[in-house]
């Protein structure tokens, strides 16, 4: 059986908010290491990879690997019924037809349980190579969100080019062009999460669909910083770390000159 108790139930809401616009169903894999999800969007252009490590839960028991296929839209509806301060317990049997969500209010004066039907999802599991990134950019997540929103107001595709001087985001649309350069500022007085840091072994540049990048920024409430990893001619990774718990990562295939 599987049973996991999470003290910060609000975290589950944030995780679901970060994926609900991209996927409609997914297999949550329960394993002794934690709860994970890998799923592609319907156009198979991007890949979501979530990990919630077992150590991040107050109580975690998983005897064997259990795939828990869930409709994300319905899951959002159920998790919305939890208060943001509630403690959430997720429970299911080894071959589950249903999964149970138990919500306990912080003061222990209200207990709710919801049972949701599982579904069989037959999706291909992709193999993400263990990559050394040519360029890694760490920046405030709110700034990245703003930047993607601004770029999407002008064009559909953004060219991201990273040099040791900084990261240049460029787009072109019917009304004109836009360029935003973010420079590394590691020596200032900023707190760590306010800094922009760039690590590169060689300059890298590629084009990406802004519609997807904008969807990824729905994960902004999960982390004060976001990390972009790039390798020439390979998908970009956009990573939001979840403190003491794991991550939400998005991989997006580049646009390639025909």
């Amino acid at each position: 059986m599987f049973e996991a108790r999470l003290l910060q139930g609000g975290l589950l809401k944030k995780v679901l908010d970060s994926i609900k616009d991209i996927i409609t169903e997914g297999n949550f894999d329960c394993s002794p290491n934690g709860l994970s999800l890998q799923a592609m969007d319907s156009s198979h252009v991007s890949l979501i990879d979530i990990l919630l490590e077992s150590e991040g839960f107050e109580h975690y028991r998983c005897d064997r690997n259990i795939p828990m296929g869930l409709n994300i839209t319905n899951l959002v509806k159920m998790i919305k019924c939890a208060g943001s301060e509630d403690i959430v317990t997720i429970k299911c049997e080894d071959k589950p037809d249903n999964v149970t969500f138990l919500f306990e209010s912080k003061d222990n004066d209200k207990i709710s349980d919801f049972e949701m039907k599982t579904m069989t999802i037959d999706d291909e599991h992709l193999l993400v190579p263990d990559q050394t990134y040519t360029a890694v950019v760490k920046m405030p997540s709110a700034e990245f969100q703003r930047l993607c929103r601004d770029m999407a107001a002008i064009g559909d595709t953004v060219n991201i080019s990273v040099t040791k001087e900084g990261v240049r985001f460029s787009t072109t649309g019917d009304m004109g062009t836009a360029n935003i350069t973010v420079r590394p500022n590691p020596s200032g007085d900023q707190k760590e999460e306010e800094r922009t840091e760039v690590q590169i072994t060689e300059p890298v540049s590629a084009g990406f669909a802004l519609r997807y990048l904008n969807s990824f920024t729905k994960a902004t409430p999960l982390s004060p910083t976001v990390t972009l990893g790039m390798v020439p001619n390979l998908p970009i990774v956009v990573e939001y770390k979840i403190a003491d718990m794991g991550h939400v990562r998005y991989y997006l295939a580049p646009k390639i000159e025909d």
Binding site: M40, Y251, K255
Partner: peptide, 14 residues
């Protein structure tokens, strides 16, 4: 024009 590749093109099944 720029062509959008699929993610499977890069990450073959595991």
């Amino acid at each position: 024009p720029m062509q959008q590749r699929s993610i499977e093109f890069f990450f073959r099944g595991g």
